[in-house]
Write a protein that binds this DNA or RNA. Structure first.
Length: 284
DNA sequence: ACAATTTGACCAGG
DNA sequence: CCTGGTCAAATTGT
């Protein structure tokens, strides 16, 4: 237990340092992109490679769990479809369609994943090596742009549970907030199997009441614009991470990439590099 | 003809 | 009851 928590602390620390490195590199990339001169393109390539390496390192680190690695994930997957377990097809036997006649199918029951690994990225680029199928679009309250819902193409053929949500940012319409939910379990023989396109993945646990002060959870929930907590010392980051372990990032109104790790959120300005999967453009 | 997207209804959680 | 997430029929694209 003690050793385990110690290892976790070390892991967090290393992760934090990598995040900072990524952050700085991203800023460099941003600066480079502001200058259109062609002479800088080698530098841009280099920066992109560096980001790739950092992501890779983070993925490696991420897959290294000090101990009891699958505890969280197992919990998550085990409680995914609480509502109904008939393989997604169930006819609800009766009054499921109360509103309208024209609904002939059985829409009664579907899985709603409540807990899964999520991580959010803001980027202008919507492409990667996985194939996705759009399955919905919603107008979100207080949001100018609709949110689009994608699932893995192999959801039914291979049971891949990966989904993502894409939404334009109001503040920066060129940027998309992309939320990845769940890992790909499909066997597409394309490149590396599980690469997380961003820094941290985030496990949203609903029933983690033993963690830390619950007031933080609520304080973060409202839609805000101007509180940028700029004054967190790096040395305290480890603490901050633990403190923020309760946070569920839901939205992030400005042009910042929000990465969550166990509910932690670190913001990175102008994350602009391509993520590793290919998204299909949707137009509003 | 098949595959992907669009769109509105349905459903669960808060 | 409202909102966000999912389903599936209809439509569009390849």
């Amino acid at each position: 237990m003690d050793i385990n928590s110690n290892n976790k602390a070390i892991k967090l620390k290393v992760m934090d340092q990598l995040v900072q490195g990524h952050e700085m590199t991203t800023k460099v990339q941003q600066l480079l992109s502001q200058h259109g001169s062609a002479s800088l393109s080698p530098a841009k390539d280099l920066v992109e490679k560096i980001l790739g390496f950092i992501n890779d390192t983070i993925s490696t680190l991420d897959s290294f769990e000090p101990s009891s690695p699958s505890a969280l994930v197992t919990t998550i997957e085990g409680s995914q479809n609480a509502s109904c377990d008939n393989d997604g097809k169930l006819e609800d036997s009766g009054d499921s369609q109360k509103r309208l006649g024209p609904v002939k199918g059985k829409r009664g029951c579907y899985k709603r994943k409540k807990k899964s690994e999520t991580w959010t990225v803001e980027s202008t680029i919507l492409e990667d090596t996985f194939s996705w199928r759009k399955y919905g679009q919603k107008q979100i309250l207080n949001a100018k742009f609709p949110r689009s819902y994608f699932r893995c193409t192999h959801k039914y053929t291979q049971g891949c549970k990966a989904t993502k949500q894409v939404q334009k940012l109001e503040s920066e319409p060129r940027l998309f907030s992309i939320t990845y939910i769940g890992n790909h379990t499909c066997n597409t023989n394309e490149v590396t199997p599980i690469i997380k396109p961003c820094i941290h993945h985030d496990v949203i646990l609903m029933d983690s009441e033993e963690l830390k002060s619950p007031s933080l959870t609520t304080s973060m929930k409202e839609e805000e614009e101007n509180h940028h907590h700029g004054s967190s010392t790096e040395s305290d980051m480890q603490l901050v991470w633990q403190e923020m372990l309760v946070f569920e990032e839901e939205h992030h109104p400005h042009h910042e990439a929000v990465y969550g790790c166990g509910g932690t959120s670190a913001s990175i300005n102008g994350f602009d590099s391509a993520d590793l999967w290919s998204w299909q453009q949707y137009s509003v």
